[in-house]
């Protein structure tokens, strides 16, 4: 049995996220400013993002590397794939 880490809503600083995904802080900030990854609403002056953003950034990095799309394109792709998945699930459920 393994201990699970469920804390993907945990707010992280852009420095921490940047270190995890191996990017510069400025990239993480830019992705937030462009609305490509979500941020955590906080009264703090510091820009925070939820840990789940790490997964999204990694996917965007892979799409960029493997398909040559830019970050904005990768974000659109991920959003559309998510919508397709959702529609497929609904379709499957209706068929049942």
């Amino acid at each position: 049995m393994w201990a699970a880490d469920f804390d993907l809503d945990e707010p992280l600083t852009c420095d921490v996220v940047a270190a995890i995904v191996g990017a510069r802080r400025s990239l993480v900030v830019r992705l937030v400013q462009q609305g490509l990854i979500e941020k955590v609403d906080t009264e703090s002056d510091e820009l925070l993002v939820p840990r789940r953003a790490v997964v999204r950034i990694r996917r965007m990095q892979r799409l960029r590397r493997d398909l040559g799309v830019n970050f904005a394109g990768a974000a659109v792709i991920l959003d559309l794939v998510g919508r397709i998945e959702q529609l497929n699930r609904e379709l499957e459920w209706r068929r049942k």
Partner: peptide, 14 residues
């Protein structure tokens, strides 16, 4: 695809 987390492609940026 999952390994290395895309390190190579970011050299130009990072």
């Amino acid at each position: 695809s999952g390994g290395g987390e895309g390190f190579d492609i970011f050299e130009e940026l990072f």
